[in-house]
């Protein structure tokens, strides 16, 4: 690794597991100080022990404005500033196949709060710090937010919302030197691993439709794309969604 993020402070939401954990690994490998916010307290100590370096892991429910304020304060108090915010957290039910016609208001609210309301919380809480350092925001959206998805329409809906948000905020914050981008990954997640374990042929079948022949690894494939968007190499990139899908999705 190049140490391209040495001296940078990055807040990552939903950092305890899956893609979020891979993003933390990639950012730390590039020398960043990472505020790896976790939803489950049990994930905090193992994460800090494994990643080491300049990493802290506060508990944060992104649907709570107070928790988000505290996570930003943690970055300022621990590392003296904040250069980037990465919103990766999603509802624990995001991978569920949804019977849209029967989706309850409670389920809809769960999707909306973690993926959409949290964007407002993060933007408002982090803006002063990001403006101080001409920082950046990265939103983990999804190919489902570009192409739609027949069996997880609520997920496609909130991921589409995130794209509308990031494109607009990029325009709003551009004059302050703050960049806002998205990453739409096709990644191996814990939920997918469980599904593959239950159906040994599933991974081979699904991988056939990926030109690179595999699902993205959170630390080696997805995290580096986030690290790139957080770094100086992307200093003229804003309002974009980077598809990191092994070529599975090519239509914008």
């Amino acid at each position: 690794m190049s140490g391209a993020l040495h001296g940078r402070v990055v807040l990552v939401t939903g950092a305890g597991r899956g893609v979020g954990r891979g993003i933390v690994d990639a950012l730390a490998a590039e020398g960043a100080s990472v505020v790896a916010s976790v939803h489950h307290e049990a994930d905090a100590a193992p994460l800090v022990a494994a990643v080491g370096g300049r990493t802290v892991a506060p508990v944060c429910d992104v649907t709570s404005r107070a928790d988000v304020d505290a996570a930003v304060a943690c970055a300022l108090d621990t590392f003296g500033g904040l250069d980037a915010v990465v919103h990766n957290a999603v509802s624990n039910r995001s991978n569920e196949i949804t019977d849209l016609e029967a989706a309850t208001p409670a389920l809809v609210a769960e999707h909306m709060s973690v993926s959409v309301r949290a964007l407002l919380h993060l933007a408002q809480a982090a803006h002063p710090a990001l403006a101080d350092r001409r920082g950046t925001m990265v939103v983990l959206t999804s190919p489902a937010g570009i192409q739609g998805t027949h069996d997880r329409a609520l997920y496609g809906m909130v991921k589409g919302a995130q794209r509308g948000f990031l494109k607009s905020l990029a325009r709003e914050w551009g004059p302050e030197g703050i960049r806002v981008n998205g990453v739409a990954p096709l990644a191996m997640t814990p939920a997918l691993e469980r599904a593959f374990a239950g159906d040994p042929g599933m991974e081979t079948r699904l991988s056939r439709v990926v030109p690179l022949g595999r699902f993205g690894d959170p630390a080696r494939d997805i995290g580096p794309a986030v690290a790139y968007l957080c770094g100086d190499g992307a200093r003229y990139v804003t309002g974009q969604t980077l598809l990191v899908s092994g070529g599975r999705f090519t239509a914008l």
Binding site: I146, G164, E172
Partner: peptide, 25 residues
């Protein structure tokens, strides 16, 4: 995307992706 109209654009893109997803469904 639209500066100063972030809630409007966020809602519109969510609605559009809901329609695309349901069109598939």
């Amino acid at each position: 995307g639209a500066a100063a109209l972030v809630p409007l654009a966020t809602a519109a893109e969510a609605q559009r992706l809901l329609v695309k997803s349901v069109a598939r469904r």
